[in-house]
């Protein structure tokens, strides 16, 4: 005879990833680093944006990059030319970075550099509009890119990433005149599900709007460093 039983678990499927992300964040906090998780579909302009960002902010902030490229080191090579540490994580066939992969990157940063010297770690996630949104890596802020060539409806169709973003960059706006696209509509579609997101339309090609993005980065790094300083005083 068999008797049937039930065991209540109530465990989140992402529990292990979440715990790993919290651990990574604790490291960043200990070192006074602000971490941004940069996400978009393939080719929306993440690497070009990082190039421009590093070139503009390198003098005032000490930056490192964690680069999640699926198979190649191409993106990492491009960024190394700017003289910042670039830790390339081979994600294999995985369609997103997870907290364990990024922990490996943090470990390398710790082994090869003095992590306390850094202000900002930029994580370029794998180009994918769906999966990265569910896997925190230990970031303080999420940045989503959507290029004008992708269409106004993408935030409605792939909402999670846009719903969770702290900052949305509408990229490649230099191409807008050639397309039938309404940038305000893109912004409106995202605000429907995320009313407090900071939005900047930018072109890495012409430089339009990039100052707004740089200011946002400065501001979150500042805010993060101040709140860490306060936390250490109150200890």
């Amino acid at each position: 005879m068999h008797q049937t039983f039930e065991a209540g678990l109530g465990i989140n499927l992402l529990h292990a990833n979440q715990a790993g992300a919290d651990h990574n964040r604790a490291h960043f906090d200990e070192w006074g680093i602000t971490c941004l998780n940069i996400m978009s579909s393939p080719g929306a302009g993440k690497t070009v944006l990082l190039e421009k960002t590093i070139a503009a902010l390198n003098d005032e902030l000490k930056i490192a990059v964690i680069e999640g490229d699926m198979t190649t080191e191409l993106d990492a090579e491009r960024l190394r030319q700017y003289g910042v540490p670039v830790i390339a994580i081979n994600t294999g066939r995985s369609c997103h970075l997870d907290s364990k992969m990024v922990a490996g990157g943090i470990h390398q940063l710790e082994g090869q550099y003095e992590p306390k010297e850094f202000d900002l770690v930029l994580v370029e996630n794998v180009g994918n509009l769906v999966c990265p949104a569910e896997f925190e890596v230990g970031e303080h802020f999420k940045v989503a890119l959507l290029s004008v060539t992708e269409g106004e409806d993408k935030p409605l169709k792939y909402p999670i990433m846009f719903q969770e973003a702290d900052c949305l960059l509408i990229t490649k706006i230099d191409l807008a005149p050639y397309l039938d696209i309404d940038i305000d509509r893109i912004a409106g579609n995202v605000r429907q599900m995320n009313p407090h997101v900071a939005i900047a339309p930018v072109s890495a090609k012409t430089g339009e709007g990039l100052d707004i993005w740089f200011d946002w980065v400065r501001q979150v790094v500042n805010r993060q460093q101040r709140s860490l300083a306060l936390a250490s005083v109150s200890k």
Binding site: H2, Q3, T4, F5, G8, L9, G10, L13
Partner: peptide, 13 residues
């Protein structure tokens, strides 16, 4: 939600 709610199992008596 993304949760493992419960496990149902049998034990021989």
């Amino acid at each position: 939600e993304l949760k493992i709610e419960k496990i149902e199992y049998a034990v021989g008596v």
